[in-house]
Design a protein around this nucleic acid. Structure first.
Length: 401
DNA sequence: CGTGCCGGGGA
DNA sequence: TCCCCGGCACG
């Protein structure tokens, strides 16, 4: 709380035009930063008797944490926390995508054994499960992964600054590219349509499958199909630790789902071709499901958190923030798809997926903060002293909430 | 009803 | 890009 307010100070004072949007976004986000964190913590802690398994997961959860933060809200988090996140993130990514040698055990809570085998060792290259950020540049000396902890740390400030703007997009894009590359080599495509876990080996085939079977029409926008399938590479599936993301998410989710059914078990894939995949497939479905839910503001997330300041804004950003996690576990085309989804709000062919309340009612508007704005402070007659934003009737920059 | 500000539009 | 404002949500 206090943190939030204090942050607002300096940054906001230099009210330059360029910042407008940033400011807007921030406001949503900054609330979130805290909230999210709490959520994270609570989730992390609340998992009771998972013993080892949990430790294995914590790695992932860290990643999650990072991804969340990297998404948007960096600017408003206390520097320390940012640092921590960054560090952790770096480490996690590093460890996931490179040989275990690199990772230094310092600062890492999780135990550096066991799990690694499953996550990294198993597949040819970690990449898969872990957002294949750097990984695909197998080249041993690829620029990315190598930085040691200290190095990372030292460049932290800069990182935070730059990453702030670039990371969300670049990350996503990168990831996409990465994935594309990798996948083209070998992989399967799994239909994410709820209730259908179909796996095909060709993208085209998958698209067709989706288009015809699910979208029920010959021609929809192409991106659409894109959204309903995901690439998986045979090996990745198994190692992909479903547990972490699941255990993390499912809690809140299940409780929240105004959605008719939890696809996990309720909807068994009709024609599950490969038995071995049944499990993963449900996982996928869940991911997909969550994705959708996230897309829709009315989704639950908040349940774990304080309901107060939670407005539509929170929902949205929450969704945004979780996205990476999902993609992390290897469902692609998410960003695109989701965007699409948001735009079109999945009209008729909803199914379970569309627990969507028409997005209309959850507007982007946020409750008004109690901060005094220029108008109040200076009064209407001194309008020329208002910050630009206020003058333009935009979100106040000088006194952000 | 005052206020904050989104979304849209003009210059 | 700067600026303005209609209109809406919130309190």
């Amino acid at each position: 709380m206090a943190a939030v307010k204090s942050q607002a100070g300096p940054g906001a004072m230099q009210s330059t035009a360029g910042r407008k949007k940033e400011g807007l976004v921030r406001r949503c986000v900054q609330e979130n930063a805290d909230v999210q964190k709490h959520q994270q913590n609570s989730i992390l802690q609340s998992s009771p008797g998972l013993g080892e398994e949990w430790t294995a997961n914590s790695e992932q959860s860290n990643t999650l944490l990072f991804l969340q933060s990297s998404n948007v809200n960096l600017p408003y988090r206390s520097p320390e926390s940012v640092e921590m996140d960054e560090i952790m993130a770096a480490m996690v990514l590093t460890s996931l995508s490179c040989s275990p040698v690199i990772q230094s055990p310092t600062q890492r809570d999780p135990l550096p054994h066991g799990p690694l085998d499953v996550e990294c060792g198993g597949g040819e290259l970690s990449d898969s499960g872990s957002s294949g950020y750097w990984s695909w540049e197998h080249g041993s000396v690829s620029p990315a992964p190598s930085p040691s902890v200290t190095e990372t740390e030292s460049s932290m400030g800069q990182l935070a600054d730059e990453g702030l703007h670039m990371e969300p997009e670049l990350g996503a894009r990168d990831e996409l590219e990465t994935r594309r590359c990798k996948i083209s080599s070998r992989g399967a495509y799994r239909c994410l349509w709820p209730g259908c876990g179909k796996v095909l080996t060709s993208r085209v085939g998958m698209k067709r499958h989706i288009r015809i079977l699910h979208l029920g029409g010959p021609e929809q926008s192409h991106r659409e199909e894109d959204f309903y399938y995901t690439e998986v590479s045979s090996e990745e599936e198994e190692p992909t630790p479903p547990s972490p993301s699941l255990s993390l998410t499912s809690g809140p989710w299940s409780s929240c789902s105004s959605t008719p059914s939890q696809p996990t078990s309720a909807e068994a894939p009709p024609s599950s071709s490969a038995l071995s995949q049944s499990a993963p497939s449900s996982v996928w479905q869940i991911h997909a499901e969550h994705l959708y839910q996230l897309t829709h503001p009315c989704a639950p997330i908040e349940l774990t958190i304080s309901p107060d300041s939670a407005s539509s804004c929170d929902w949205t950003s929450a969704g945004l923030q979780l996205r990476p996690q999902i993609s992390m576990s290897r469902s692609r085309s998410i960003s695109v798809g989701e965007q699409w989804l948001q735009r079109n709000s999945v009209p008729s062919r909803s199914h379970t997926v569309s627990a969507s309340p028409s997005r209309g009612h959850c507007s982007i508007r946020k409750g008004r903060g109690e901060a005094k704005k220029c108008r109040k402070v200076y009064g209407v007659e001194r309008r020329d002293q208002w910050c630009n934003a206020c003058r333009w009737k935009k979100a106040c920059q000088r006194f952000p909430d």
